[in-house]
């Protein structure tokens, strides 16, 4: 029996922002936008990453956080990286006029969704929140797909000064949008979830928890008895609203509950 890990050659390594890079691997993948793969950097670590490019070549867009992502960042064209997946449940591209809200590296998961939505003829508006102008991720990609893009930065160096939610919440009040897709810091997503449930607007959000097995058996990424790796990472608002742990607690690597 063969292991499910595919060893793929790096075909391109692109700087996106000062601390976010895209690694393109020479292997095809079929996946829903929002699904993820487990990325093995031999000798270093294995970790979950959203698939940022879906198709004949697979892309992963990552921020350097710890040893694993640092080891990934020094891979050269031709080096090998192990991939298993796709795993989990992604976004369902529906809606006539969706609002997409991204924070941090959230655009990695949301960009394939935006492209899929545009193929479906949806009228897509995207709010990208970044700390500062240089860290805005995949703006050109969203514009090229034909989406309307609104920028916020924490320091006001570009677009509106503030958080993505400072813009997204008033936009939602206009009731122009029939669905919200989001991926970003949990605080941002809980704020949007509160607003969406108040206005009865459907929402799908990608939740992050520390993950080990990726296949739904180890219980590391548990949230209220469900598992981010298998039942998520994308959850609909009805499920999110039923969670008592969303926005409040998560498990550390030992399984202890810690506050978010």
């Amino acid at each position: 029996m063969k292991s499910s890990i595919r060893m793929l050659k790096v075909s391109e390594h692109i700087d996106e922002t000062p601390n976010v890079r895209t690694i393109v691997l020479d292997g095809s993948i079929e996946a829903e936008p929002g699904q993820f793969v487990m990325v093995w950097v031999p000798g270093a670590d294995e970790f979950p990453m959203s698939i940022s490019y879906i198709g004949d070549q697979m892309g992963i867009t990552y921020q350097i956080v710890g040893d694993g992502t640092k080891a990934l960042s020094i891979k050269h064209v031709g080096d090998l990286v192990g991939i298993r997946g796709p795993y989990g449940k992604g976004y369902t591209p529906i809606g006539r006029k969706p609002l997409v809200v991204a924070g941090g590296t959230g655009m990695a998961a949301l960009s394939p969704l935006i492209e899929r939505l545009k193929l479906n003829q949806s009228e897509v508006r995207v709010v990208i929140g970044a700390r500062t102008a240089r860290e805005i991720l995949f703006r050109d990609r969203a514009m090229k797909a034909g989406a309307e893009v609104v920028i916020t930065t924490d320091d006001g160096s570009e677009g509106e000064k503030g958080f993505a939610t400072d813009i997204a919440v008033p936009i939602l009040q206009t009731r122009e949008h029939d669905i919200v897709y989001c991926c970003g810091p949990e605080r941002m997503m809980t704020k949007l979830a509160d607003k969406c449930s108040e206005l009865s607007i459907p929402m799908q959000a990608s939740v992050e928890r520390l993950m080990k097995c990726g296949i739904g058996i180890c219980d590391s990424c548990a949230i209220d008895g469900l598992h981010v790796c298998r039942d998520g990472p994308v959850f609909s608002i009805d499920v999110l609203k039923g969670f008592s742990e969303f926005g409040r607690t998560k498990l550390d690597a030992t399984g202890r509950r810690i506050d978010i």
Binding site: M1, K2, S3, S4, I5, M38, W40, D45, E46, F47, G68, G82, R84, K212, C213, G214, I215, I217, C218, S220, L251, A253, T254, G255, R256, R257
Partner: peptide
């Protein structure tokens, strides 16, 4: 527990080295 990878899928079987993670 142990570092990752901590699991390998082999068809319907698994090889795990979770390493007794627990709170």
């Amino acid at each position: 527990g142990h570092g990752s990878p901590c699991i390998v899928e082999l068809g319907d079987s698994l090889v795990n080295a979770m390493g007794l993670p627990n709170p």
